[in-house]
Write a protein that binds this DNA or RNA. Structure first.
Lengths: 155, 155
DNA sequence: CGGTTGCTTGGAGTGCACTCCAGCGTTCTA
DNA sequence: TAGAACGCTGGAGTGCACTCCAAGCAACCG
């Protein structure tokens, strides 16, 4: 048996991913130029080529003249990468994850671990941010009061 | 009337700020060397000097031989800076905030605005992170299932 | 009084994640 | 068929937030 993960967003419950990447072409007719992918993902062409150079992307199809032609699958991968980037995961770790995906099924546990660690990081980052909110609210309260005091002084 | 904000953490409800910065000296005897501040804040001496150079710190007292002597007030400021840094606020904005504090009471509304914007940023960052958690959990679930499937195959 | 430790300075270097450039070929539009 | 628009490459540059360096002074220890 071979389990294949179709990195597809599918009809699933993926919560909002920034730019509404609506207009996908049906599978089989899915050949996007780099500028279409730019429009779809919000990344720059520079960044897309750079992702490829550093091994963060699988090998991208080329047209007969050597231009990149991205597939729906590539777009799905980019969506995942975008999410991982939002978690604050360093690019090097994303490259590591990409390598594991390329390496095949026997890397499942390592991928699992990598994602689990990332999840922990996200949770503690959220807690950290909530800690800063407390301080921010205290300060903001101070300035709001001060503003009112200054205003009433003028009365 | 002049309202002074004693950037003091005081007896307030400041939630955990990383390293338990317990051992403060009483006001009046509050003269810390740079290495003591390093131990207290977790920052490096390099960073402390750099903060000063870029205007993120008020002028720090010096000993008769020109060495820095930090006060409790400086430590309080550093604690706030640490919190702001955790929010992801760029250093340039923190410098701007420091300038406003130095400039005096008439900058209250601008400080208020800066903190309010930062608060909004923190809230949307939290929302963003919670969005990534959904994706992460879906992936992690996939790998967990796959792991179980692979294990049962071996039975 | 020599050595170690701690602190000073200005300026240079680092790592990350892009971001841009020059110089070229290809493809589309008028 | 001219010219704009789009894409290609390797390599250099950018901005941020530190991070380190060399050279030198000051204080204490044996």
């Amino acid at each position: 048996m071979t389990l294949t993960e179709t990195e597809t967003t599918g009809a699933g419950a993926d919560t909002c991913a920034g730019p509404p990447q609506g207009d996908r072409r049906p599978d089989g007719a899915d050949k996007y130029t780099i500028s279409e992918v730019v429009a779809l993902t919000g990344l720059t062409a520079h960044t897309l080529r750079w992702y490829e150079r550093i091994g963060l992307m699988p090998h991208i199809d080329r047209s007969h003249t050597g231009q990149r032609r991205y597939s729906n699958r590539d777009l799905d991968w980019l969506a995942l990468v975008g999410k991982l980037r939002l978690t604050g995961m360093p690019v090097a770790d994303m490259v590591r994850y990409a390598e594991l995906v390329r390496a095949g099924d026997h890397t499942y546990t390592e991928r699992f671990e990598l994602l689990r660690r990332t999840r922990e990081d996200v949770l503690s980052r959220i807690a950290e941010l909530q800690g800063t909110l407390a301080v921010l609210d205290r300060k903001i309260g101070f300035y709001a009061d001060a503003g009112r005091a200054l205003a009433s002084e003028r009365t």
